[in-house]
Design a protein around this nucleic acid. Structure first.
Lengths: 168, 168
DNA sequence: CAAAACTTTCAGAAACTATTGAAAGTTACG
DNA sequence: CGTAACTTTCAATAGTTTCTGAAAGTTTTG
């Protein structure tokens, strides 16, 4: 396969994958573009490569910076801002996990905790079932969240090596 | 909190969480409704509780059955079909993982494999960077996928107990 | 300070996704 | 069979999200 074709397919792939997991297609594509760029790119470069508008590029670059996946780089003697992506993939994964935990999992944990705190619990079949299922979900979410926390603190190799070890 | 209010909030919460992770809001809400229902529900029940149309209820119930999260239940002497959700939350999690692997991760793995197979690799900085980053992503996806595979084969308690053990 | 070079914002437009509901299809049973 | 009781489909519509691009804002520099 030719590089240009492979690049296009990768941008496409990353965009599709993003939208399947709740991340805006364009944001994912800009991320992909910066990941494979050997040098940092300007907003103009991003606009040209993906054929998107100035506003769209700006908004999504800002959002990628909020996710700590991309940062601005200023070149000496140049007015223009350049953007560079974090390239260490384990680091990228950790930052995505971190953001989703913070934005989505923490609120869910708190809501679930409140929900099982019913006025007259276990009175009816309905209450019993509700408390049981919601309680179970809460427990699983906590376990997964704790695992994510460990992964965040861990070195990639250590984490997966340990995982493989225990599976023997 | 009153049960009815808690129910409403749970339906809301599950719907929102679903849409953040790429799952249609209504499908997630129907799933939530069936999860907390002590008895199986008919399409009519679902339509009434969520105030949605017949077509919408039907389509999303069918999709939940495709995900193996819900199944039909026929009551003796009754024409009407009833729907019941899998209530074992670890089982639910495993089925979601299984489906997302099958539908999304496998295709990504194959595409990534093809993409690094360039015509004249490592000729330019651009190729080098591309092959490195895409290769790294492929390796990480494989590791995560293997971990998911292990989780699928495992018993919940065994899996998390092992995980806790190694973290000591 | 003023003009140039660039970035950010935001209201409207476009694109995409989900939903409705009436019609068509299916099945059970007298 | 034929009809009643239900389920499924699908074209039209509604709703939501994303994108555009012109205008406003900001910073740098002569």
């Amino acid at each position: 396969m030719k590089l240009d074709q492979a690049k296009q397919e990768f941008l496409q792939l990353w965009g599709t994958l993003g939208s399947q997991w709740g991340i805006n297609r364009t944001m994912a594509q800009i991320h992909a573009l910066l990941l494979i760029a050997p040098e940092s790119l300007s907003a103009e470069d991003v606009m040209a490569e993906l054929a998107i508008s100035r506003g769209n590029a700006n908004m999504n670059l800002r959002e990628l910076m909020n996710w700590n996946l991309v940062y601005k780089e200023l070149k000496m003697g140049e007015r223009r801002e350049y953007f560079r992506a974090e390239k260490d993939i384990w680091e990228v994964a950790k930052r995505v996990i971190q953001e989703r935990r913070r934005r989505e999992i923490q609120p869910v944990k708190e809501s679930l905790k409140d929900l099982v705190d019913l006025d007259r619990p276990k009175e009816s079949d309905e209450s019993k079932e509700f408390v049981k299922v919601v309680g179970d979900i809460g427990k699983l979410v906590n376990k997964l969240d704790n695992t994510a926390d460990l992964a965040l603190k861990a070195d990639q190799n250590w984490f997966f090596n340990k995982l493989i070890q225990i599976m023997k």
